[in-house]
């Protein structure tokens, strides 16, 4: 494998895993449910996106030719992440979960 492909793959892998870690840290330390919802649904999705791009680059150099099917995972996650976030936010509002003190505005 040429050096620059390896470097690109490494870059995307590190970026992806760091984004996944940021999402998990957000889930761990933010004060209330609504703020916690922000970390995982987006940072983690992007983290998997980075991993998938790295995987595509890595497998692109093989004799069978480039493979695109990893893109389907990212596509699927990008379509489903907003749906599950929306659903959980609605459930939380129905259960009237406590808000962080500094929150302005009210849920319906």
């Amino acid at each position: 494998m040429p050096f620059w492909i390896e470097a690109l793959v490494s870059l995307f892998l590190v970026l992806g895993s760091l984004f996944a870690l940021v999402g998990a840290i957000g889930l761990y330390r933010l004060p209330d449910f609504y703020t916690r919802l922000h970390g995982p649904t987006k940072a983690t999705t992007l983290g998997v996106g980075g991993m998938v791009i790295a995987s595509m680059l890595f497998f692109a150099g093989r004799p069978e030719g480039p493979s695109l099917h990893e893109l389907l995972i990212t596509l699927f996650l990008f379509i489903t992440a907003p749906v599950s976030a929306h659903m959980l936010a609605k459930a939380a509002m129905q259960k009237k979960l406590p808000l962080a003190e500094r929150t302005r505005g009210k849920p319906w």
């Binding site: 999402g23 889930l27 449910f33 916690r36 995982p40 649904t41 959980l88 459930a91 259960k95 979960l97």
Partner: peptide, 10 residues
């Protein structure tokens, strides 16, 4: 409960 489901999702 929503927190736990969110954790499972992640």
């Amino acid at each position: 409960l929503p927190d736990r489901i969110l954790a499972l999702d992640t």
